[in-house]
């Protein structure tokens, strides 16, 4: 059964009459990972926010979005809030602004745990240390005592991802979670996501990096300027993209790592 179904999702700016997203169609089966790819401005983040009811009031959402049996677009705010806290977790793109600058990281994560999982403060502290260690952050205790502006963007991102994972929702929507991370951390985060997927988590992974999407996704949706360009199984799409835009994205990505790949392979062949 499809966990999330999106039919003809459109987002309209009431003041300018422009469509930010038009007629988007996709669905996600339980325990699978959907990768959404596209350049910046293609509407990827906006569509996710629309599903969760997080868009500002000047943007009008039309169409049909179903989470299980719940219809999301015209749902009551209280219903949406319950869903957002327990069932669907959204990891935002800009980690720096997702944390309250006035509180320490530790306080915020513990607060989230106590709110959502009904932990005691002790249990929450343990859980926090656990996720910070899992995210390969040195000195978890120091990080818990630090304020957001004292940590680098990469560290904050990992804190957010760790927190989202630990909340154990049914669906995690991750918006560009590995942008800005170096390869080692990126690999760590991706492996964590892979492990979660193996344990049954449903994932929506938004990225402009095809490499990262290919590593994780079962299905892929390519977006451009607010429209769905191509949608299908990952293996199929990466092997034989149909739409010229998908081909262009793939070729561009290949081009970026071509030089690197050649250097490594050259070394591999000469050393053996």
């Amino acid at each position: 059964m499809n966990l999330i179904e999106v039919d003809n999702l459109s987002i309209l700016n009431r003041f300018t009459g422009e469509f930010i997203v038009k007629n988007l169609n996709f669905h996600i089966k339980k325990h699978t990972c959907l990768g959404i790819v596209g350049e910046s401005g293609s509407g990827k983040s906006m569509s996710m926010k629309a599903i969760l009811g997080l868009l500002p009031s000047n943007l009008e959402t039309t169409g049909c979005v179903r989470f299980g049996t719940v219809e999301m677009i015209h749902a009551e705010p209280e219903t949406l809030r319950k869903i957002r806290s327990k069932h669907i977790c959204l990891i935002l793109q800009d980690a720096m602004t997702a944390f309250d600058p006035r509180l320490t990281i530790g306080k915020q994560i513990i607060e989230t745990f106590c709110e959502n999982m009904n932990y005691t403060v002790c249990e929450a502290t343990e859980a926090t240390l656990d996720i910070l260690k899992k995210m390969m952050l040195h000195d978890p205790r120091l990080i818990m005592q630090s304020y957001p502006h004292q940590l680098s963007g990469g560290m904050l991102q990992r804190c957010m991802i760790g927190l989202a994972m630990a909340l154990n929702p049914e669906v995690i929507i991750a918006d560009e979670p590995t942008t800005g991370l170096d390869s080692i951390n990126q690999r760590n985060v991706l492996d964590e996501f892979k492990r979660l997927r193996g344990e049954g988590m449903t994932l929506i992974f938004i990225s402009h990096d095809l490499g990262v999407v290919r590593y994780l996704a079962d299905a892929v949706l390519v977006m451009r300027q607010g429209r769905g360009i191509e949608y299908g199984e990952a293996a199929q799409l990466f092997a034989n993209p149909v739409h010229p835009y998908s081909k262009y994205l793939l070729d561009t990505r290949k081009g970026l790592t071509k030089a690197f790949g050649e250097l490594i392979n050259k070394g591999a062949t000469t050393s053996c």
Binding site: I184, K254, T257, F260, G261, G267, S271
Partner: peptide, 24 residues
Amino acid sequence: AVQKLSQVQNPYAKKLIDSVVNFD
């Protein structure tokens, strides 16, 4: 030198190279 990238010695550098998500 970038040309000799496959011959790095340092463990951190090696780990970095190995963890690059391959795309070809």
